[in-house]
Design a protein around this nucleic acid. Structure first.
Lengths: 199, 199
DNA sequence: GTCTATACGACGATAGAC
DNA sequence: GTCTATCGTCGTATAGAC
């Protein structure tokens, strides 16, 4: 996953990362159920047998992807928590992070925020119960205690603060935006913050 | 068992509506690809042959559902346009409508707002390009001309105005809200409007 | 660990009787 | 129009050689 573009190797680690990379592209590009293990094998230039050696089954590939991408996102939010102190600054940084991930690795964002995980990952909790989203709500809740954000239901505040950004991101992933995504950042952030900020 | 079968209506219209109703439930409950035509036949108490008499194929069922539900929503928004004049009043009414549809017929809202249509309806435009969403953006744009809403990119304004509500709705559909959905209406609307309103 | 070949079940769709 | 029975295909997963 991390060392995606290297010379063609046949090491186990390389096989594994190739499979994950191409599975992510196929799952987001044409959907999990429209993607066969054979498709993944072909795109990864790896045999079906190798795939089943590294992963229990097709679902296992998706689950691994889901967990690794979420873990990565948690780390990035943790960094933001370290480098920013106010709720305003932290939420702004998270918004920038979401936009950046979307532009740099749209498949990642699509798989995290836009896929219907419950349809192919039985037992998995909804994405909004996942760690990154919980962290975002905690940041908002703390912002209420410091008086930066209106005292209200934290779920509502988080939804309204980030809801606009998420709409823009899904619009970008759907290819329906007229301008490039970053051009929407300032205005979207201003609106989102205005929705919840104490004047 | 056999007696029960006598009570079942066998008119074409009844067959068609039964299939659509149960297909919607199954598609939203377990996903389009996890639902077989046999499942639909069983749930609808109709034979597979009858289903294929009324619909070209499985995709045709989903496409019919999609079109009918969107048409219904367009009519409801049209009603709102008739009965309300200001952008404030119209957007508020639309927010209430979205919440009400979600509570009364969650499958409808899930199928419209939450399904990944492009994965099973090839050629279909993304939901945010659909008529209801376009109408919402037009209402917002008019609100800018009348001075009710900040002059800004209409896409951003619409995303921020309704983004919070949509997040709450998806949270409800995912079953992760602590309170019942209507209890969030006032606060969510207030936040959304504050995000874009001219003071 | 990686590969090819294959078993086997599931599902979409059709045929043809009533 | 509705039904049952069946066909053909596709895709997951495994077996077993290298």
């Amino acid at each position: 996953m991390l060392n995606a573009n290297r010379d063609i190797q046949r090491t186990p680690a390389h096989t594994r990362s190739q499979v994950l990379t191409h599975a992510l592209n196929l799952f987001t590009g044409q959907g999990y159920f429209n993607t066969s293990v054979h498709d993944i094998a072909h795109a990864s230039k790896v045999s079906v047998g190798s795939i089943y050696h590294h992963f229990k089954d097709k679902e296992g590939i998706a689950r691994t992807l889901y967990e690794e991408l979420l873990t990565q996102m948690v780390e990035e939010i943790t960094d933001i928590l370290r480098n920013h102190t106010t709720a305003h600054s932290r939420c702004r940084a998270i918004t920038e992070l979401l936009f950046e991930i979307t532009v740099v690795t749209p498949e990642t964002m699509e798989f995290i925020i836009y896929a219907k995980h419950r349809e192919f990952l039985p037992g998995e909790f909804p994405i909004c119960s996942s760690k990154p989203f919980v962290m975002m709500r905690e940041i908002v809740a703390e912002g209420m205690e410091t008086g930066e954000i209106h005292t209200m239901d934290p779920t509502v505040a988080t939804a309204c603060l980030f809801g606009g950004s998420i709409r823009l991101i899904t619009g970008y992933l759907d290819g329906v935006l007229e301008k490039r995504l970053p051009e929407y950042l300032e205005e979207t952030w201003t609106c989102g913050w205005r929705a919840v900020a104490v004047v």
